[in-house]
């Protein structure tokens, strides 16, 4: 699914050249659940931007879902992001003026899907994360955990090849974080490929494989023998609070 071959990323030119990633090769199969770990400044954000097709490698090759995306132009990359990547951000990044349903519709809007199909798919995605009752709420009417679930629905709605989550539990309390991890594990069970970027060892241990990045290099790649099971909490209590 993800195939990085000797990827190097260099920022700046001349004296201010910074090598953010050096000769990274990484292979992620369909259906995997992988955590990418590393302290800040390690290059894990750069790695995530490359995997998410927000950026191009300086040298090396990136094959995503069977297609070489390392030399695409901006518009082609936008199209790949739209089709193949589902982003989940630490700060949720829902658009405040749109309600939950409209937020989830967004990837399909940029795919020029007809409105009826868009609404149907967005509703299904929201049902999937347990927010069928709150489709018309705006982000400020939702709790952090609920907002992150809307963001997950938005990432899922376009049926991407991979779900790419950047510190998805970083802004949540432990209970809401647990709930999000439960959803991720459930999605993974259904066969969705997940890549989580985190510096939280506990979050990483929910995955089945941990990749460690330090100083722009991969320094570890180990399977997790006994992944932690997140206890799926249903949102009733939370709904009552909100």
């Amino acid at each position: 699914m993800i195939d990085l071959q000797h990827v190097t990323k260099i920022y700046g030119q001349g004296d201010v050249r910074v090598t953010a990633l050096e000769d990274v090769s990484l292979h992620v199969e369909r259906g995997e659940m992988v955590a990418i770990m590393g302290p800040s400044g390690s290059g894990k954000s750069t790695l995530m931007n490359l995997i998410g097709c927000l950026d191009r490698p300086t040298t090396g090759k990136y094959v995503l879902a069977g297609r070489d995306v390392s030399t695409l132009n901006d518009n082609q990359l936008a199209r790949v992001r739209n089709r193949e990547i589902g982003f989940v951000f630490q700060t949720f990044n829902l658009l405040p003026r749109l309600n939950a349903l409209q937020n989830v519709e967004l990837p399909l809007v940029y795919r020029r899907e007809p409105r009826a199909a868009r609404v149907r798919k967005a509703m299904a995605a929201l049902e999937m994360v347990g927010l069928g009752e709150r489709m018309h709420h705006h982000p400020n009417q939702l709790s952090g955990g609920q907002q992150q679930r809307v963001a997950i629905a938005r990432a899922l709605v376009g049926e991407p090849s991979i779900l790419l989550a950047d510190e998805p539990t970083g802004n949540l309390d432990s209970r809401a974080g647990e709930e999000i991890m439960a959803i991720f594990q459930e999605l993974n069970q259904q066969g969705i490929t997940l890549v989580l970027v985190t510096h939280d060892e506990r979050v990483a241990r929910h995955c089945r494989r941990i990749i460690r990045v330090l100083d722009g290099r991969l320094v570890g790649d180990e399977p997790v023998t006994a992944p932690l099971r997140a206890v799926p909490v249903h949102s009733d209590q939370e709904a009552a609070q909100a």
């Binding site: 927000l54 518009n75 936008a78 199209r79 992001r81 739209n82 990044n93 967004l106 795919r111």
Partner: peptide, 16 residues
């Protein structure tokens, strides 16, 4: 700015 970033991440092209 952030909204624009989100939209681009979700697949908005320059033209959009």
């Amino acid at each position: 700015t952030r909204e624009i970033g989100v939209r681009k991440a979700l697949g908005a092209r320059r033209r959009d």
